[in-house]
């Protein structure tokens, strides 16, 4: 069980003042994790990995390797699917996310998520961002205004949309929409941001902006990103995990994975000679 002092250190508000508290190297900790669809079809095999606090960790691997499945287990998004089953455990800051005392909704409030296809709600830009506050029952206008401005600044979108906050989010470009989704994900001050191929539908310029943004956000958030784009993983991440057929093949610093991988499958994948 973790030290309570460390617990307080990871809430974003506290972290600003107590920056001398060391960051956890096992902020998200996956232990002997197995995962099954339809009760029997196993997609993740005995995974063990520690994701460090306030760094970017990339999951790479060919399609169907289970990287997205693992990501979606971290905020229990997979709960939506019928017939799933897991063994082992995932800890966030020392606490099991499968603890029956933890409500899945309160878990998800601590974890922002950005999806492959940008999915703004059919509402105004403003309402998109304050959505997570509204569903948490916070409606005070001054607070919402402040959150909108802060989140849009953090998502490097404020200057582009500040004059049309109350217009539909669908008027934005693809890259802007995705940055809006990031602003939405960080609006309620989560601790972790999960990104499921956030740039796969974007052009290189928009992708570049998102990557720069990720680089900025890691000062404040622990980021886990799933990506098909190996250059992207190399550019934005501090640590990289390579998955193949539901198994964790290699997990190391991004530098080691891309310059001197230990496993020959990793080597083949990152050098594009796979399969």
């Amino acid at each position: 069980m973790p030290d309570p002092a460390i617990k307080t250190a990871v809430t974003p508000q506290a972290s600003v003042t107590t920056s001398d508290v060391p960051l956890r190297a096992d902020y998200i900790s996956v232990r002997n994790f197995n995962f099954f669809y339809n009760g029997v079809h196993q997609v993740l095999f005995d995974l063990n990995l520690d994701i460090p606090e306030r760094q970017v960790t990339a999951f790479i691997g060919p399609s169907g390797c289970g990287k997205s499945t693992l990501l979606r287990n971290i905020n229990r998004m997979n709960d939506l699917i019928d017939g799933i089953r897991h063994e082992g455990d995932i800890f966030i800051d020392g606490h099991s996310i499968f603890d029956p005392d933890i409500e899945v909704i309160s878990l998800r409030k601590r974890i922002g998520m950005v999806f492959q296809k940008s999915n703004p709600f059919p509402k105004s830009i403003y309402e998109n961002i304050v959505y997570s506050l509204r569903v948490a029952g916070r409606h005070r206008k001054s607070e919402l205004d402040e959150v909108v401005e802060r989140s849009l600044h953090a998502a490097a979108l404020w200057d582009e949309v500040k004059d049309r906050l109350h217009q539909s989010a669908f008027g934005l470009s693809g890259g802007q929409m995705q940055r809006l989704c990031i602003a939405r994900a960080i609006a309620n001050q989560p601790e972790i941001i999960l990104m499921d191929e956030p740039c796969s539908a974007l052009d290189p310029i928009a992708t570049g902006k998102i990557e720069d943004l990720i680089h900025e956000l890691k000062k404040q958030f622990t980021i886990v990103i799933v990506t098909h784009n190996m250059q992207q993983a190399a550019r934005v991440s501090d640590r990289t995990a390579f998955f193949y057929l539901g198994k964790l093949i290699e997990y190391n610093s991004t530098e080691a994975i891309f310059m001197n991988p230990i496993n020959s499958q990793t080597e083949a994948y990152v050098s594009g000679r796979f399969g």
């Binding site: 250059q231 190399a234 550019r235 991004t254 530098e255 891309f258 310059m259």
Partner: peptide, 9 residues
């Protein structure tokens, strides 16, 4: 330099 080549393409 080799790190940059490997990671930044």
């Amino acid at each position: 330099a080799s790190r940059y080549i490997a990671l930044r393409s």
